[in-house]
């Protein structure tokens, strides 16, 4: 009598998901550099833009009025910190989620893990769970760091609205991360792709400047990127005290992105999986 094939149950699938998360957690703790990533980077990264803005503003801040006329605020420090924090969140996700399958490939463990009787998606989602946890920690450190060192208050009175924007952004950012992971496996190259994707968001989403300075065609590109709305909504709530009704159009767009992008990300993953099976290229690097 042939042996009964292994039937994965929801519990066994959940166990696999948590096992992947645990494995990533152990690797994460093994390299204490995360301390630097999460404590130094949030404050260090925006400084380049902040000091450049200070230089552009002039010794007496005479040119800040031009910035204020376009952005609606003379507080360029908070303006830049909000944009760059979202950018860094995306950057972290691209590295953590996008690079994790590629890392398995480089270590030579991807093929053997692929043969395990668990849904392959759990390899991707398991790593994303850890990434989400660490990203939330990163956001908290950024808020505390800028409060302490620069007196910038990134948390407005309307905490509920901020959390809603963050929750909707999670879907968009991780959807991009899933699709990105598949792209990295397809091209077997992570660095250049991370630079390219994050560069597109950096240029088009108004991370450090108001979108009004962009030419028309660039503003059109900005309007189809989720980060544009996430950054715009957070700036409106934090810097201008906007309420739910004021940012409702942005929230609706963010909600659509949050619903569509994860589905597209998972679809890209299955496409990549099918291609890898046809070409036998999963173990190549």
């Amino acid at each position: 009598m042939p042996p009964t094939p292994f039937q994965p149950s929801p519990i066994s699938q959940l166990r696999a998901l948590l096992a992947v998360t645990r494995k990533n957690w152990i690797i994460f703790l093994r390299y204490p550099n995360w301390l630097v990533v999460f404590i130094i980077w949030p404050v260090l990264f925006p400084l380049g833009y902040i000091f450049t803005a200070k230089a552009l503003g002039g010794p007496e801040g005479g040119a800040v009025g031009n910035f204020s006329a376009l952005s609606g605020t003379s507080d360029y420090l908070s303006y830049i910190v909000i944009g760059s924090t979202f950018y860094m969140w995306l950057n972290l996700t691209l590295w953590d989620v996008g690079f994790q399958l590629r890392q398995e490939q480089l270590r030579g463990t991807l093929e053997s893990n692929w043969l395990a009787p668990v849904p392959r998606l759990s390899l991707l989602v398991g790593g994303s769970l850890l990434s989400l946890g660490t990203s939330l920690f990163f956001l908290a450190v950024t808020a505390v760091g800028f409060r302490l060192f620069f007196g910038v208050n990134l948390v407005s009175e309307n905490v509920g609205l901020l959390l809603l924007i963050l929750a909707l952004s999670v879907g968009s950012i991780y959807g991009i991360g899933f699709a990105f992971a598949s792209l990295v496996l397809r091209f077997r190259e992570a660095n250049a792709l991370v630079f390219l994707v994050r560069g597109v968001f950096m240029i088009f989403c108004g991370v450090t400047y108001p979108l009004e300075v962009l030419p028309g065609w660039m503003q059109s590109v900005a309007s189809v990127l989720p980060l544009t709305y996430a950054i715009g909504a957070i700036r409106a709530v934090t810097l201008h005290g906007a309420g739910f009704a004021d940012i409702a159009p942005k929230l609706i767009r963010l909600a659509v992105f949050a619903a569509v992008l994860p589905v597209l990300g998972v679809a890209a993953f299955y496409l990549m999986e099918r291609r890898a099976r046809h070409t036998g290229s999963l173990g190549h690097f």
């Binding site: 833009y49 002039g58 010794p59 005479g62 950096m202």
Partner: peptide, 23 residues
Amino acid sequence: TPVYFMGRSFAGAGGSGGFAAYA
């Protein structure tokens, strides 16, 4: 590119006078 656009957001009709005062 972002620095270029950031510079434009601070520039007035007379160019980047603020930056020139430093550099």
